[in-house]
Write a protein that binds this DNA or RNA. Structure first.
Lengths: 233, 233
DNA sequence: CGCTCGTTTGACACGGATCAAGTCATGTGG
DNA sequence: CCACATGACTTGATCCGTGTCAAACGAGCG
């Protein structure tokens, strides 16, 4: 198993519990081939660091299985989560394109399978295969879009209830009205620029108002219109 | 003069007070040619809207002269400034790539000269000229980077003084230690998610502590290390 | 001159951060 | 099997920072 990062890394059987790669990069078969020829398969255990803030770029990471948390940390140790990436996403593009240090840290939330593409190979693919650069453009566009969404949450939602409501609605839009939250209150707080206690309090308030409910480990949205009206205020 | 937007638009002599285009897009001469062949020159007066939030994309805008404010607005009318773009930048990429509505509004801060490239021509150039897609990738990367910077300011700087200090340092890094602020307190407040009054108070506090000073219309940074230490806290 | 716009300053209330307990579930070692 | 540790969640009390409202100042300009 390759070690692009020097981080702890479990040798792991590809036939393990990790679900099959989604093969999301919609490239032509020939382009897929040249990508796979240039990349290496890497496995990361949960909470491993794919790349870290302020680190120079080593390459890009095509996530095949597992979910990865993208966050940035301040000097005082406080951190803010930008988003969590899923299978099919290309990670570390910003640094690989600009050549500057990573602006954020990528941490595996679960065991992950990754196709790692070294910096040099990345630049070469970018030059040679126009198809590949289109794929990069689309991923960068998604990254930019989600960063804008974060700015909107952080800058435009003044009260904590607005932020939490917006977070729930965005999360639900990815997976129906009910979604099992794989994030702790602590992590939600980090995504919203709040404290753990405030998240707990706000969720309790929503439960009391029958806007949401807990069904076992899952959180279900009972009154989506009411949540939406909270954001508009 | 073309009207890509239906917005008010002053007929204006190219030899007017607008300074010459920086011609920043570092493309090969042949690629420049094909870009210019496909685009149209447009002039916007100050405070004109190039494109607006929630509008479907009409194309992309290569800024040749002038500065443009990129902001998003909430339902209650509050708005937050993402950044202000200068000559050489390609605007409206996010929407043009994804095909979805614009996530932000672009407003001319000064009279602007723009090369407007229609949506169809943009997609065609993207397919045909690999060089052009590299240019798009680099611009998207810059956009993403500045959005990340905003997230850091909004999410990681808790106190108003940290946000203002960070804003001043970022602004200064673009243009030396002294910079004539072309933004009102109101606009700074919008960029930082604060109120106009808080910005005034914080700047007054900085002046009192001799961290900054006003020299005519310009703001100069007297004690950069002290400002930096404010951010780390 | 009187208008407008940006800035400045003060008083006050409110929201969320912070600190501090205490609950509940899970897991670990004796 | 029980005692204990751990991690996430819950809840309450208090405090500080900003938002909000209000009033006034200064500069530019018709």
């Amino acid at each position: 198993v390759a070690l692009p990062n020097g981080i702890e890394l479990s040798e792991r059987n590809p036939t393990s519990a990790i679900k099959a790669p989604d093969s999301l990069c919609n490239l032509s078969p020939t382009a897929q081939k040249s990508f796979e020829a240039a990349s290496r398969v890497v496995f990361y255990p949960a909470s491993a660091i794919l790349f870290a803030e302020a680190q120079p770029p080593r390459g890009v990471y095509l996530l095949r299985a597992g979910r990865v948390k993208l966050a940035m940390t301040s000097a005082e140790g406080k951190s803010i989560i930008l988003r969590v990436a899923g299978p099919g996403e290309l990670l570390g593009l910003g640094a690989a394109v600009s050549g500057k240090a990573h602006e954020l840290t990528a941490e595996a939330l679960e065991p992950c399978q990754v196709d790692f593409l070294q910096f040099g190979s990345f630049r070469r693919l970018l030059q040679e295969r126009a198809e590949f650069s289109i794929m990069v453009i689309e991923q960068l566009s998604r990254d930019y879009s989600s960063a804008c969404s974060q700015v909107r949450t952080l800058g435009l939602c003044r009260k904590a209830s607005e932020k939490v409501a917006r977070f729930l609605l965005i999360w639900a839009s990815h997976g129906g009205t009910a979604a099992t939250l794989p994030l702790t209150h602590e992590e939600i707080a980090q995504a919203l620029g709040l404290t753990r206690e405030t998240v707990t309090r706000t969720l309790a308030e929503f439960k009391h108002k029958k806007l949401i409910a807990m069904v076992g480990p899952d959180l279900v949205i009972c009154n989506k219109p009411a949540l939406q009206s909270l954001i508009a205020a």
